[in-house]
């Protein structure tokens, strides 16, 4: 072989080997990065570019976990649900486990926003006590004919009824929030149970199930108590209303306490949005998810909205006017 050629070959050979090693190293590093599943995701520093959209189940899971640690529960929920939707069995137990944490946190947030159940219950009991006292004094006043006592009982009754109304509203709001928390926690319980079913070695899930069951039991107790108090308050308000009606009957009009005219409408004012008195309604169907119309039913509705015959769009609300004569070029 020509020595010159040999030397050139050697040079190229060295360069080639170096290039090969470099490329190989580059490939290996990329492969390691891909195997980690970090492709497509980056940690997000405060002022760096935003993280890329997750593309595989691992990315969704990691993104959800990140959001969970940051406290962004709603986004975390979305990511975990996306991870579960992909039906990758390797990640389902972990995703369910973390989703349970998300929902538990959401329930806790609902409770934070809610009026304190104990305070509401206590206030309800106080209002009920006051109402009882008012009813007693009212019945005493009704038994006698003392006008001042009648008026006093009437005014007290009005105050007690207003207090009952406000307290009932507070209790209702507390119940709504507690109910929302309960549904979140029940869903969290389902998630942990599912995680345990898929991975029977998940001791954390088992422990969390016990904790949540206990918390749910306490929440249900509170709800039951508040419901009971709400019912009692409603009943008492009705009784006070009856009493006030009787008192009104006994108090002459000139002696009626001020602000009397609006009292009868108090109940209606509370329900400005519902059907009017006297209208009968059928039994509602609560708690069921929405079901769309069938295509036949939708077709009927669309046919009813079709234009044709004398069914016309409302073109204008004013009188019809003759169009102005246009002067000028007609393009």
């Amino acid at each position: 072989m020509n020595s010159k050629f040999k030397i050139k070959n050697e040079k190229w050979g060295r360069r080639g080997r170096a290039a090969l090693v470099f490329n190989f190293a580059f490939l290996i590093l990329n492969f390691v990065g891909a195997a980690d599943g970090t492709n497509g995701t980056h940690t997000n520093d405060t002022n760096t570019a935003p993280e890329l959209t997750p593309t595989n189940t691992r990315d969704f899971f990691n993104a959800g976990t990140r959001r969970l640690t940051e406290g962004k529960l709603r986004e975390a929920e979305g990511f975990f649900q996306s991870a579960l939707t992909r039906q990758d069995e390797r990640f389902q137990p972990q995703a369910l486990h973390n989703l349970g944490h998300v929902r538990y946190g959401q329930g806790a947030e609902e409770l934070k926003k809610s009026p304190d159940a104990n305070a509401a219950s206590q206030r309800a009991m106080n209002a009920l006590d006051r109402g009882d006292a008012v009813l007693r004094s009212g019945s005493v006043a009704l038994a006698g004919n003392d006008l001042n006592k009648l008026i006093e009982a009437y005014v007290n009754g009005r105050g007690a009824r207003k207090e009952l109304r406000e307290t009932a509203d507070l209790v209702r709001r507390a119940m709504e929030a507690h109910g929302a928390a309960l549904s979140k926690w029940q869903r969290a319980l389902g998630d942990f149970k599912s995680a345990l079913e898929l991975n029977s070695n998940d001791a954390d899930a088992k422990r969390n199930i016990e904790i949540i069951e206990e918390a749910i039991a306490k929440l249900i107790d509170k709800l039951r108590k508040m419901a009971q108090l709400g019912q009692m308050m409603g009943q008492q308000r009705g009784e006070i209303g009856e009493m006030m009606k009787q008192l009104r009957g006994k108090i002459p009009a000139p002696d009626a306490p001020p602000g009397d005219a609006g009292e009868e409408d108090e109940d209606e004012e509370e329900r400005p949005n519902g059907p009017r008195e006297g209208q009968k309604e059928g039994k509602g169907r609560e708690g069921e998810e929405q079901r769309p119309l069938s295509s036949q039913e939708a077709g009927w509705i669309l046919d009813a909205f079709k234009l044709g015959g004398n069914k016309q769009l409302p073109m204008g609300q004013g009188e019809e006017k003759k169009p102005k004569d246009k002067k000028g070029k007609n393009w």
């Binding site: 409408d265 169907r285 609560e286 069921e288 998810e289 929405q290 079901r291 769309p292 509705i301």
Partner: peptide, 25 residues
């Protein structure tokens, strides 16, 4: 119309609504 114990003029916008799905809306 009467609102909150006070009778006075009320603007009323009236129409017809048709629900297209069953469930809670």
């Amino acid at each position: 119309m009467e609102f909150s114990g006070r009778v006075g003029p009320t603007y009323i916008y009236e129409s017809t609504l048709i629900p297209l799905v069953a469930g809670r809306i």
